[in-house]
Simulated scan of single mutants.
Amino acid sequence: MTQDLKGRTAIVTGSGQNIGRAIALTLARAGANIVVNGLRDKNKIEAVAAEIRALGVDSYAVLADASDPEAIADVVNEAVKHFGAIDIAVSNVGIRPHQAFTDISVDDWQKVINVNLNSAFYLAKAVVPHMRKKKFGRIIHLTGAEGVIPMANRAHVNVAKAGMTILAKSLALELGPEGITANCISPGWIDTDRDMQNYPDLQNIYRHTREKTPLRRLGTVQDIANTCLYLVSGMAEYVTGNTIYVDGGESML
């Protein structure tokens, strides 16, 4: 068993910063070529792609809306033309607006479901035909504890995260005979840049994490990236349809 990804190609959505960037760089260090994706900031994703190329593997950056099925299909098709295959797909886009249920409009609901849940579906739809040709594929969804233990004022986010988990299980069930696995990573409270208006109680949450969770610290983006590397490598050939909680033990509380 090995964590060597030499010759593999991965697409990581939302990889211009934070967890996505760490995943892209970690897979690159293991030898994978990487398609770096972001929505708006071309400079950020180009910088990540440059970091990856400096590691001795191939990479390029592409702006595309992962919640647009045609856009993400184009990204995948171009990646296959460039690299010859797509072996690994990491769905890492999401928004987490803080809204009471009665304040959520139909448009708000549809936007969260489209960005968080539908984007994972669109990415899988785009990559699975190529993975089937090779009888190999690794699909990862970045979910969250909200999909199991809902948070107040996030009904739309909770539902989307739960849906991502069931989607991964469905993919695992149907595609396992063809050598394709699908799993989820559920991050706990990770020390990243955040939109503070969507986390009004963040400092109390961080204090609770440091004082009460078994490991007594916040998670790091590298904690998540290391788990992703495990799931897409030869170390996890017999792991599919699962969610790994990378949360310092918070899910036990």
Rank of each mutant, 00 (worst) to 15 (best):
D107G: 01
R217V: 07
G147T: 04
Y206A: 13
G137Q: 07
I205E: 09
M235A: 14
A172W: 12
A236H: 02
Q197F: 09
T181M: 01
Q197K: 13
L167Q: 10
L231P: 02
V232E: 01
A168T: 10
D201R: 07
V221N: 05
R194M: 12
V157E: 05
Y122V: 11
H130K: 08
G248Y: 01
T243R: 00
D223M: 00
L215R: 04
K125N: 13
N183M: 04
C228P: 01
G163Q: 05
P177F: 08
I180V: 11
G219E: 01
T192D: 03
L202I: 15
L202K: 04
Q222K: 08
K134E: 12
I104S: 02
Y206S: 03
G144F: 15
L167H: 13
H130C: 04
P187Y: 06
I166L: 12
E146Q: 08
N114H: 05
A126E: 09
F136W: 15
L171Q: 04
A162K: 02
N226F: 00
G219A: 03
A225T: 03
A155F: 03
V232F: 02
S186D: 11
I205P: 02
F121V: 15
F121P: 06
Y122T: 06
Y230Q: 04
I224H: 01
N114G: 09
W189S: 08
R154K: 13
I113F: 14
Y238I: 08
A155E: 05
Y238M: 12
L231C: 06
N158F: 05
N183W: 11
N204Y: 12
T143A: 14
R194K: 10
Q203K: 12
M164K: 06
K125Y: 11
A168D: 11
G248H: 00
A126D: 08
A160E: 07
L142M: 15
G248P: 01
I190G: 02
V148D: 05
I166R: 00
N183L: 03
Y245I: 01
H130T: 05
S186V: 11
T143M: 09
T181W: 01
V159Y: 02
Q110Y: 14
V106D: 14
A182G: 08
C228E: 02
V127A: 07
V112A: 07
T213P: 12
S105W: 05
G241L: 13
G234C: 07
N183V: 08
G219C: 04
V246I: 14
H141K: 00
A236Y: 02
F136M: 02
T227R: 00
N118Q: 11
S170D: 06
R207G: 09
S105T: 15
A168N: 12
A120N: 13
N114M: 06
I139Q: 03
K125W: 12
R207N: 13
A152L: 13
E146I: 03
P214V: 10
A182T: 05
M164L: 15
I180C: 05
C184I: 11
K134V: 14
T227A: 14
R216V: 08
D195M: 11
A160H: 07
L175W: 13
N198D: 14
E178K: 07
T192P: 10
H156C: 09
